[in-house]
Design a binder for these strands. Structure first.
Lengths: 238, 238
DNA sequence: CCAGTTTTGTTGTATATACAAGTTGTTGGT
DNA sequence: ACCAACAACTTGTATATACAACAAAACTGG
């Protein structure tokens, strides 16, 4: 067999999407329809739909149908203020989990940002943001001790409440540089992500005086790996 | 059915890998062995193996078997000198393709690097590096006109020859900054990757006086998307 | 001992079938 | 107008089977 049947169906569907014959969020043929159209079994048609779904090109809902996922935004991560919104607007599943919460002495730059004294206790928390259960972004947040109780009450699978929202400054506004922002003894078991390296930069003219400082770190494609360098940074403000 | 059978098999296999009962590059049970062990059909066992493969946890070779993929390196992309080596050492498939080659007037910073005059013609080339056919890194290379003929003769699916190898400088050596390194009219059709934004930085005390300047850009997980900010940068030297 | 062939085992593709689980729209009754 | 039951349709899981493609080991004849 020169080219697999399921691959032909995939190519056909991709071309339909490419020429926007099937626009974003529109319904695509069901498994049975495709099977009949291409004279293949349902399982073969299913495989085409399945793989396109895994590649994030379609999304499917049991009992409803399959649909064209929206193109990921053309905007850079640097411009994304709410990763949950961004993911959901494409028809992908957003979830998140708190990986770690540690109390530690406040680094200088964080103290400046939060209006704390240096070495005063501060809470370091690590959240992984998942798109279709694949880790997309790793975010570290330093949370003021005054807010930590309230902070922990939130459901991390929902959008981050306003007071913890990350606002992101463009790199061109670079002002401050922080070479090591992760605690030295920081480890991370979940999904076998490895410790992030101290290569983040914090830049901005002004910092929030309350709430949290957060730093985003883009994880690698796939799951349990740590390939991928520093990405960007963000901080809270209000 | 509370938990799907294939999911149980996946969990079992993941736990075996986690406790290193199955070390890296070791063989895992075949489809038939798993099917018998769990009293399921081969197709169900296959699904578990398949999904773990798609997640990059296993790799499989037709006629041979399934094996545990190596953990992605703990080293940052900033330290990786040869992405092809890095990918292959994990048991993943490396490939690459030249997306674009354009002749254009040499930007100042590139001219400095290559020992050319400003606005003298230089070649801008764009290569995408794929891991298991998923785009992992987008690399732009400015190639001196003296070398471009030889440069095009190489097979981009092989390792990049020595004279084009990217050497990567740590961010802390920042010296020069280039805000816009991509040509203004740069477009990229392949895999629907979008134009990269001019947010790269070139930093190093010294530049190569011949060969190519290259800049790496980490693409997003998945395929046709452009989410993901700047990542790192590299340049040739010898 | 070697080269060529066969056997065996593995993954890859494909089909036909069955039932479960979920959503949506219709139908009918109150 | 509202609700409950049902039918139709969709995706999700699972099985049993068949053959193709490929690689490595075993076998065979010289």
């Amino acid at each position: 067999m020169a080219v697999a049947k399921f691959a032909e169906i995939k190519e056909y569907m991709l071309s339909q999407i490419e020429i926007t014959a099937w626009p974003e969020h529109s319904r695509v043929p069901s498994e049975n329809e495709l099977a009949e159209q291409f004279s293949v079994s349902r399982m073969t048609a299913r495989r085409a739909l399945q793989e396109l779904t895994e590649q994030g090109i379609l999304y499917r809902t049991q009992g409803v149908g399959s649909f064209v996922a929206a193109l990921k935004s053309q905007s850079s991560l640097l411009e994304i203020r709410n990763i949950a919104d961004e993911i959901q607007s494409r028809g992908h599943a957003y979830s998140a989990s708190l990986l770690q919460l540690t109390e530690l002495p406040c680094p200088t730059i964080i103290a400046t940002a939060l209006g704390l004294k240096r070495n005063e206790p501060v809470f370091f928390s690590l959240i992984v943001h998942l798109e279709n259960n694949q880790p997309l972004q790793l975010e570290a947040r330093y949370v003021s001790p005054l807010l930590v109780a309230e902070y922990l009450r939130q459901d991390f699978n929902q959008q981050t409440p306003h007071q913890y929202l990350s606002h992101i400054a463009p790199l061109t506004e670079a002002e401050h540089t922080v070479e090591a922002i992760w605690p030295d003894d920081f480890t991370c078991k979940h999904l076998a992500l490895k410790k992030a390296e101290p290569c983040l930069r914090l830049t901005r003219r002004t910092f929030s005086r309350e709430g949290a400082v957060s730093l985003a770190y883009l994880t690698s494609p796939g799951s349990r790996y740590r390939l991928g360098g520093h990405l960007n940074f963000s901080f809270s403000s209000n």
